[in-house]
C-alpha cells in the first residue's frame, strides 16, 4: 500500500511536535509514507466562507496531487484538514457538475481520488496489534489519562466512516495495547473551540475549562489527543483556565503519537516534548518506566 502524508500548516508551525512524533513513530514501525508534493493549505472554514467553489477546489488540489502521485491512501494527522478533504471529495463525487467545475478550476482530473485517513485509523487496525504490543520498551501502565478525540476524527459519522461519533474507541484501544488503561469520561468528543483561540480566546477558555473539569473528575493526570488544534488549545490556555478554576492546572496534553513513541523507547527529543507549554516529562518520569531489555 502506497501512503502519502499531508502534514498541513499547523504541523509546520505551532504543532511541530505532532509532525516530529508522527514521523518518528512511523519510521520506528517501519511504515513508509511519502510527503505529498506541492501541497497547499486545506482552506479550513476560511476558503469556503468566501466562495463555495474555492472551498471545494482548495482541499481538492491536494487530493488531486495524491491521485497523481498514485497513493492508495493519504494520511492527514490534523482532523480539520481530514474533514475538509473528505467533505470536498464526497461533495464532488455526488455531484458530477460540481466535479467538472472543480476540475476546470484546478486544471487537473479527479477520476479516482484516494481516501484520506487519520493516522489513528491506520494504527488502530487490529493488524497492528501484535506489532505494537511487541514494540513496548517503557512501561506506562501507571499513566492516568483520558483520550480526547474532539470533533472530526469520527464526526459526522456518515462522512468520516470511522469509529463511533459519540463514544470513539480507536485511540483508547491503541493505548490499551501499550498497557495504559485509559479512563472513561463524558467529554471525549466535545469541541475545544478550534481556531476561535485566535479570535475569541474567551470562548475557547470556556470550552476547554469544561474539558479539564471533566478530565479531572475522571481522575486524569494527562489528556491524550489526535488533533493539532485540540492540542494547541488545551496546552496553551491553561493559565487562564486555572485562574477561573481557582487552582493550578498544569495538566500535560500529549499526542497519541508521542505516547506510543515514548512507550517504544524513543528519546524525548525525537518526540518534541520540549515544545510543550506544560512540560509532560515530570509526569512521565514519575511513572515506574522500567525499560525492558531487547
Amino acid at each position: 500500500m502506497k501512503l502519502g502524508y499531508y502534514p498541513g500548516c499547523s504541523l509546520e508551525g505551532i504543532s511541530a511536535e505532532y509532525d516530529e512524533s508522527i514521523r518518528a513513530l512511523f519510521a520506528h514501525l517501519e511504515i513508509t509514507m511519502e510527503d505529498l508534493p506541492d501541497w497547499i493549505c486545506c482552506g479550513t472554514l476560511a476558503a469556503p466562507s468566501l466562495s463555495r467553489l474555492l472551498g471545494l477546489a482548495t482541499p481538492l488540489w491536494n487530493v488531486a496531487q495524491a491521485e497523481k502521485a498514485g497513493y492508495d491512501k493519504l494520511i492527514a494527522p490534523c482532523s480539520a484538514c481530514l474533514y475538509h478533504f473528505k467533505h470536498a471529495t464526497q461533495t464532488v463525487t455526488e455531484n458530477p457538475s460540481l466535479r467538472a467545475d472543480v476540475e476546470a478550476v484546478l486544471e487537473l482530473p479527479l477520476d479516482s481520488p484516494p481516501p484520506t485517513i487519520h493516522p489513528l485509523e491506520l494504527l488502530s487496525d487490529n493488524s497492528f496489534e501484535m506489532r505494537i504490543r511487541a514494540s513496548v520498551k517503557r512501561d506506562l501502565s501507571d499513566l492516568k489519562a483520558v483520550c480526547y478525540y474532539g470533533c472530526h476524527i469520527s464526526r459526522p459519522a456518515k462522512l468520516m466512516q470511522f469509529d463511533d461519533p459519540e463514544n470513539p474507541q480507536s485511540m483508547d484501544r491503541l493505548l490499551n495495547w501499550i498497557g495504559i488503561q485509559t479512563l472513561d469520561w463524558p467529554r471525549k468528543v466535545d469541541c475545544c473551540g478550534a481556531h476561535f483561540s485566535m479570535i475569541k480566546p474567551d470562548i475557547v477558555v470556556d470550552m476547554c475549562q469544561r474539558l479539564f473539569e471533566s478530565a479531572l473528575e475522571a481522575g486524569a493526570e494527562a489528556i491524550i489527543v489526535g488533533c493539532p488544534m485540540c492540542h494547541a488549545n488545551l496546552d496553551t490556555r491553561q493559565n487562564a483556565i486555572a485562574a477561573k478554576l481557582g487552582h493550578a492546572l498544569n495538566m500535560p496534553v500529549l499526542y497519541f503519537s508521542q505516547v506510543l513513541g515514548y512507550a517504544f523507547g524513543l528519546p524525548g527529543e525525537k518526540l518534541g516534548f520540549k515544545r510543550h507549554i506544560v512540560d509532560p516529562l515530570p509526569l512521565l518520569k514519575c511513572l515506574k518506566l522500567e525499560v525492558t531489555s531487547d
Binding site: 500548516c9 508551525g13 505551532i14 493549505c41 476560511a46 476558503a47 466562507s49 468566501l50 479570535i199
Partner: peptide, 23 residues
C-alpha cells in the same frame, strides 16, 4: 467582525505561500 477579519486574513496569507504561516 473579528471572524470576518480572521477569514479574510487567512485567505490573504494563503495567497502568499499557498500554505498559511500560522503565527
Amino acid at each position: 467582525k473579528v471572524i470576518d477579519i480572521y477569514y479574510r486574513g487567512f485567505v490573504d496569507n494563503m495567497r502568499l505561500n499557498g500554505k498559511i504561516h500560522d503565527a
